[in-house]
């Protein structure tokens, strides 16, 4: 029998981080996959506040990780910790870099490299899918299926976008 638990605070924060992250990806993906809705209200709002939402994703992820480090006495001096939590740590590093450079000054300073750097966001998509699956397998909370559907749909739409772009190029 599958039993689903209520999510504790750190899982809620993780869910909010993932939701914010998906919202940052949604406008650029939907622009290609659903061009009809390019000028709709929601994609426009999301696109306008994309950087801010990204910073929120980072903050939620930060508090999610901080709570879990405290709760489970995670020992960063142990090499195995880095391996066990590699997806979470890698995602956190990406979020930190992206949040730190989500300002006009960084755009100007990094010029073309800024765009390259912010492509890292797509890597986080795969890392997060792996992270949620690896850490929540066997003890899902109410937000786990929603998270999985959200991140898998985003990944699928991202691939669809790549395919559309590839087709347009040829």
């Amino acid at each position: 029998m599958i039993v689903i638990d209520s999510p504790p605070l750190e899982n809620c924060l993780g869910f909010l981080a993932l939701s914010s992250y998906v919202m940052t990806l949604a406008p650029s993906i939907s622009r290609i996959v659903f061009p009809k809705y390019k000028k709709a209200f929601l994609p426009k709002i999301l696109l306008k506040n994309r950087r801010l939402i990204g910073v929120f994703a980072f903050l939620f992820a930060f508090f999610h990780g901080w709570l879990l480090i405290n709760k489970r006495h995670i020992d960063f001096s142990d090499f195995r910790t880095s391996w066990i939590y590699c997806q979470g740590i890698a995602t956190m590093i990406i979020f930190t870099v992206l949040a730190a450079t989500s300002n006009d000054w960084s755009v100007k300073a990094l010029k073309k490299n800024w765009k390259q750097l912010h492509r890292l966001t797509y890597l986080a998509m795969f890392l997060l899918t792996w992270h949620v699956w690896d850490k929540m397998s066997g003890h899902w909370t109410y937000v786990t299926p929603i998270s999985m559907v959200a991140i898998l749909s985003t990944t699928a739409l991202y691939f669809l976008r790549l395919w559309y772009e590839h087709r347009a190029e040829n």
Partner: peptide, 23 residues
């Protein structure tokens, strides 16, 4: 935008400091 960017950087700096401290 400038003040928002500065605020974001400040928040990120605090967060990075927190992670660094734990490590």
């Amino acid at each position: 935008a400038i003040s928002l960017g500065a605020l974001m950087n400040f928040i990120v700096a605090i967060a990075v400091f927190g992670v660094g401290r734990v490590v």
